[in-house]
Design a binder for these strands. Structure first.
Lengths: 95, 95, 95, 95
DNA sequence: AACGTTGAAATAGTTC
DNA sequence: GAACTATTTCAACGTT
């Protein structure tokens, strides 16, 4: 095995190749995406709108409660709601 | 005026300098931001929450009325929104 | 089949789902990439440099030479580099 | 002044507003930058290269040398560049 | 086909 | 130094 300034050429080569393989697959998927959009378009759909729908579904999926959460944070910052502790639980003084 | 491979050194220099001046100002504003957050923090506010509030206000500003858009129709088709009647109103059974 | 303003909900749904499936695969590949970089890093490699190498391997050699030549010309025009003579050699006054 | 849960809504409002004002200015500067690049482009300059130049001017020279040295080592390890001898010179068999 | 526009991916910077 | 956020960069698309 050959070393260059203390690094192993063989290992480096393998990392590079793995990354390039993944990159190729990503590129393939990008092509797939383009194909689907082309089909949809020729089927009379508006691709821009489809993209918006995808975005919204993603938002809905990932942050379904986030709007609520943001609103809560806002109100909490203004003292309109009771505060939460570190665990996200209602903080309550035991007197 | 001196040319290097057909480009004017003088013009290039001026563009570069304008960009660097703008960059400095941006950097100054970044510092301002940091200062405000530091103040807020020492005033007992939670900076993370303030950032959330800012994000929220920005979103509110950019929010558009989807109902009149094609997007509404598509989301409706996917059951992501309730249906509208012929007059474009929300359809609601009166029981 | 239900139509909404003339568009087929069923077809739309299928396009959306295909796109979302592709999107998931892309996301998986992104995770793979992160993993490889993590491995490389823990093996003592510099990830930033690896990214540079990938970029260079991806780019056509002519493109790189071109880009670097352009960069040199601009830096020379700004006095960031010494000037070259007609043959592209370092020009030096012999006094 | 009104207090909610011990924090001042008025102060919060002021912090928010200062931050939003700064944000606007930043946005204005971003527009300025775009304008300068547009001018440079219509003057025949390559904007990508200008960005590279700015980066180089910003970075400490040592950092650049370091980074380029590392890149060279990696490319050499991958056979993308010819090897160097102990003195850092191009090694060449004399046949 | 060059241009600007848009959206997504990569990178840099900041915070804890 | 790891996660989060902001910024920059890159690629696709429609437009002129």
């Amino acid at each position: 095995m050959t070393f260059y300034g203390g690094l192993s050429a063989e290992h480096l080569k393998q990392f590079i190749e793995r990354l390039e393989r993944i990159e190729e697959e990503k590129s393939g998927l990008a092509d797939d995406t383009k194909m689907v959009f082309a089909e949809a378009k020729s089927g009379g759909f508006d691709t821009k709108t489809i993209k918006e729908v995808l975005k919204h579904r993603k938002l809905d999926k990932n942050t379904i409660d986030e709007q609520e959460h943001l609103l809560g944070a806002y109100k909490r910052a203004l003292g309109m709601l009771p505060e939460l502790d570190k665990e996200g639980q209602l903080w309550k003084t035991l007197s």
